[in-house]
């Protein structure tokens, strides 16, 4: 594999609070290569969005990166501040948010928004920027670009709007795209369109994509590798096919078993008991141990495991190594 475009090592985010310091992201490491989609999956509160925001430098104070590094093509960017990070953000990294309505300015035409972004980050003339804006819209499958470039966001449907947001994220030709739940607000049929588009653009443009979602099905279909997060930590990391067929971490296994699947034909769904602990109240040892059915003494008392205990795959003392019988 070539050198990773985006490399995150030991990333830790802290929020100083009234009852002590919270760590919504704790020692998270991953790489994304060009043309690769890394899926980041987890339930609400797992820290997946916070990880995305930390990578692109969009943490709201008082949250801050307290340890670790974020490298873009070998160059550290986690300490970059002010104008410099803003330049990187628009130019070299793009972000796609969940709600397309709030990420577009309702008072500007989409053409203006695209042209403005291009002019800000690329050294081109205004007519050239507009031409590129049209290409960008064409790229994301907006029909009749000529007629629609001067429309306002509210004149587009939900799916079309999300396409515009993707065009906006890609128009300055970034190397990395962070997509935070890009299809959660969309209907199934439109979701399929947007995911297919994301996959195509990733391959054609050699983008490194970080796809954040709670939907294991979306990950299975779209991502090349998957990172499973639990309570701010990395629970499992591996090629998507391996993780989905034989999950090593009991949490990953439970997550997939609790998704209803008629092919298993069971009357009752598998369930993980309880819910994710609050950040201010993490259990000692492995954060998953109170909900885990493979829990042992080691899990309760030893310091929490990281991915290295299972050869870089799962943060679990007793990983599952063969497909659990259903």
């Amino acid at each position: 594999m070539t050198d990773p475009v985006l490399s995150v090592q030991g990333l830790t985010v802290e929020i100083p609070g009234r009852r002590g310091i919270l760590r919504p992201v704790d020692d998270v490491s991953f790489d994304i290569a060009a043309g690769e989609i890394l899926g980041v999956v987890g339930e609400s509160g797992a820290g997946k969005s916070m990880t995305g925001n930390a990578v692109i430098g969009l943490l709201d104070p008082p949250a801050r990166i307290s340890a670790g590094q974020v490298m873009l093509k070998g160059e550290p960017i986690h300490t970059t501040k002010g104008d410099a990070i803003r330049r990187i953000r628009g130019k070299r990294m793009g972000m796609i948010f969940q709600d397309p309505l709030t990420s577009l300015n309702p008072l500007l035409t989409i053409g203006d928004q695209l042209t403005e972004t291009i002019l800000q980050h690329l050294d081109v003339s205004e007519p050239e920027a507009r031409r590129r804006a049209m290409t960008a819209l064409d790229d994301v499958g907006i029909p009749a670009v000529e007629d629609r470039i001067d429309s306002y966001p509210h004149q587009f449907s939900g799916g079309m709007r999300q396409r515009v947001v993707i065009a906006l994220a890609l128009c300055a030709e970034p190397e990395v795209v962070i997509a935070d739940e890009p299809t959660t607000a969309l209907d199934v049929s439109v979701q399929a369109q947007v995911l297919a588009l994301l996959k195509r653009l990733c391959r054609e443009k050699g983008l490194a994509v970080m796809l954040i979602t709670h939907d294991m099905g979306v990950i299975a279909e779209t991502a090349d590798r998957v990172a499973v997060m639990y309570a701010g930590r990395m629970a499992e990391l591996g090629p998507v096919r391996d993780v989905v067929t034989v999950a090593h971490h009991p949490y990953t296994a439970g997550l997939m078993a609790s998704t209803p699947d008629a092919s298993r034909g069971e009357a009752r769904l598998r369930q993980i008991p309880g819910s994710m602990p609050r950040l201010g109240n993490l259990p000692a040892g492995c954060p998953f141990h109170p909900r885990c059915d493979r829990v042992g003494e080691k899990c309760r008392h030893d310091p929490r495991p990281d991915l290295s205990v299972d050869g870089g795959r799962a943060a679990c003392w007793f990983p599952l190594t063969e497909k659990a019988e259903t």
């Binding site: 049929s189 979306v218 299975a220």
Partner: peptide, 14 residues
């Protein structure tokens, strides 16, 4: 169109 767990890198005609 529904995402499927066993459809790795499925290329569907959306």
């Amino acid at each position: 169109a529904a995402p499927k767990m066993d459809a790795f890198g499925r290329e569907i005609d959306p």
